[in-house]
Amino acid sequence: MDLFNAVIQVLDSTIRLSVPLLLACLAGLYSERAGIFDIGLEGKMLVGAFAGAAAASVFHSAYLGLGMAILISVAFALVHGFASITHRGNQIVSGVAINFIAAGSTIMLGQAWFQQGGRTPALSSDERFGAIIWPGADALRSVPILGPIYSELISGHSVLVYVAFLAVPFTWWVLFRTRFGLRMRAVGENPAAVDTAGISVAWLRYRALICTGVLTGIAGAYLSMVQNGGFVKDMTAGKGYIALAALIFAKWKPVNAMFACLLFGFLDALSIRLQGTPLPLIGKVPVQLMQALPYILTVILLAGFIGKAIPPRAGGVPYVKER
């Protein structure tokens, strides 16, 4: 029974840890499917986290915080669009720039406005997204096996967790069952064909980037308003890059993205859980190896040793209309 409880706990923290990855990964999916590389996921998440926590603590409302997180994150996405769509700049360079501006400005503005060393004030419970307890969760807790699964794993998360997991089927539906999705995939594979059909490549790509901004904003809000009661500097800590890795791991497909993010979240939860405890057969696994595993797996996948990851064909190439 102890083992069972331990498993439930690890799975529960897996869900909590994979939510920001999942949101950022789906965000990257929109832009990369539309042919815009986005290594600025990290930065957009960070500004989202900061704007969310700052607005929530000033206006005392979690939902205003979320709105501000999305707004600022979309604004950064539009800057990326302005550089890489309108001015056909290098998308990688633009993404790097956004990460730097985000890292610097969140700390500096946070320090100037709140004077707590780059933190935002600690959020009270009504300024955060609280846990939603599902009906009967407490009553069923004592039921063996199914009780803990229902009350720990399924119930008791914040609304953003459910949003993240609902975003998976929604993204699948948008991508494969709507006209916008079809065109977005087309613009990532062959923008010239989309242009010939009389559809604006630039506007389509801008719309994809707005979707990216919305999702990274939610991811940031989750970090600062659910996982943590306030913004801490550099709180994304490379999650944007792990999300990018998960996106490649998922071969740019939404359902795969969910499993990739759950896998990476699971590795993270396990490494926290196993710190210092030796495993049977393997012995003590260095925690650094566990932390590096998502990156190592991604490199191995990219090298084509576990299937082949083929990115959208027009990814990273600015579209130049023929003259």
Binding site: V93, A97, F100, A102, A103, G104
Partner: peptide, 9 residues
């Protein structure tokens, strides 16, 4: 860091 980002941009 901000200036650095702006210069890269």
């Amino acid at each position: 860091v901000i200036i650095q980002g702006l210069v890269i941009l």
